[in-house]
Simulated scan of single mutants.
Amino acid sequence: MAEVSWRRHVISLADFTIADYELVLQTALSFREVLSRRNKKVPTLQGKVVANLFFESSTRTRNSFELAAKRLSADTLNFSPGTSSLSKGETILDTARTFLAMGTDIMVIRHQAAGVPTAIARDMDLLGGKVAVLNAGDGKHEHPSQALLDLLTLCTYLNPSNPTAKEMKGKKVAIVGDILHSRVARSNLWSLVTTGADVHLVAPPTLLPVEFAEYGVKIHHTLGNALEDADFVMTLRLQTERMGQFLIPSLREYHAQFGITRDRLAKCAPNVQVLHPGPVNRGVEISSDLMDDPRLSLIEKQVTNGVAIRMSLLYLLGSSGSDKV
């Protein structure tokens, strides 16, 4: 397997450059071609061990990473907190060290608290190993692979034959929903701003603090101007499990004011497309008929692109000889 010079870990997109985005996208495109073949498996990471340490429940992300690792011929280890030694008092770092001792090369970490992947990456580095850590979502911090698959989906829509990160320059993207609790939004902000998109955030004031303007984006508390001439509308799930009381009056009222419907897209650019990272609360963040309309929705393509992007990240981390973190 050819060695590439890249970073050791992917914890955040905050320090990603245009060159980083292009490398991930172009690598993902090559794997997307592999996934279209009859034999969808390549020996790229044969002999490597990928451990999926999901301390927080997940369906799409976990299965996508597991499938990506298997498509690359890696051996996979899966961790479930309910049946682990955590229930006996073992610490998270001790759990990670156990997987290190079993020969793990890449750890894919998901945790409900921000900072856990960073702590594990730091511990692995102190132990002197060459374990790569990939953040699969931590608290209200980031979810890098979701933002990268979103970027691939957007760029492929804009230029199906040769998508690059440069396609996003000047494109208006409206992100609507529970931005306060969204790690997806935070990672997308880094990727979209870096690639030159015109980003507009819209949500009730309780779900969109003005501090988000520090990302270099525009803040709205009504849909009106946010949707006007938008090329893409990205809706986010209301994370009611993370909310305190009184952040929104009711789900019905939220949909009445901020739900994305076919009628509301009339304000957008003529070929507007809608995205959602899932899982979707149908009839709350987005109407069911809109979500299922292939002429307007890129949601299914997001799921498909997720496997290619995660293959790309696993390959780049698994074959990197760089000490850059």
Rank of each mutant, 00 (worst) to 15 (best):
S297L: 10
S73F: 13
T95R: 09
L192Q: 01
K130M: 11
N305W: 06
M1A: 14
H255F: 14
G137M: 11
D20G: 09
Y157Q: 11
L53E: 06
A19V: 11
V10Y: 13
V217W: 07
D75N: 12
K70S: 08
K140D: 13
N135I: 02
S287T: 15
S87L: 15
T59S: 15
E167L: 01
A68F: 03
G224C: 05
L314V: 10
S161A: 14
K140Y: 13
E300P: 01
L207F: 03
L23S: 09
L13Q: 06
S84G: 10
S297D: 07
L25N: 06
T98H: 07
S5M: 11
S12V: 05
M243I: 08
A69Q: 07
P209Q: 03
L180H: 03
N78Y: 04
L45H: 09
G224F: 08
R110Q: 12
R97I: 02
G139T: 13
L23Y: 09
Q245N: 13
H181S: 06
A68H: 07
W190Y: 15
T91R: 04
W6Y: 15
Y215C: 07
S84T: 07
S322R: 12
E241N: 01
I260Q: 03
L158E: 11
P81Y: 06
L251I: 07
K130R: 14
Q302E: 14
L86W: 06
V202W: 07
K172D: 00
E214M: 08
I109D: 01
Q302C: 02
P277R: 08
E285L: 07
G128S: 08
L207G: 01
L201N: 01
C268K: 01
I286S: 02
F55T: 01
G196W: 04
G82R: 12
R186M: 10
V303R: 11
L100Q: 10
L236S: 05
T222Y: 07
T17N: 03
L247F: 10
M311C: 05
A14W: 01
T304D: 14
Q112A: 15
H200R: 14
D178I: 11
T76S: 13
A96D: 03
V233I: 10
H255K: 13
L317P: 00
L149I: 09
A165K: 04
N271G: 05
L53Q: 00
K41R: 13
F99E: 08
I286W: 03
P294F: 08
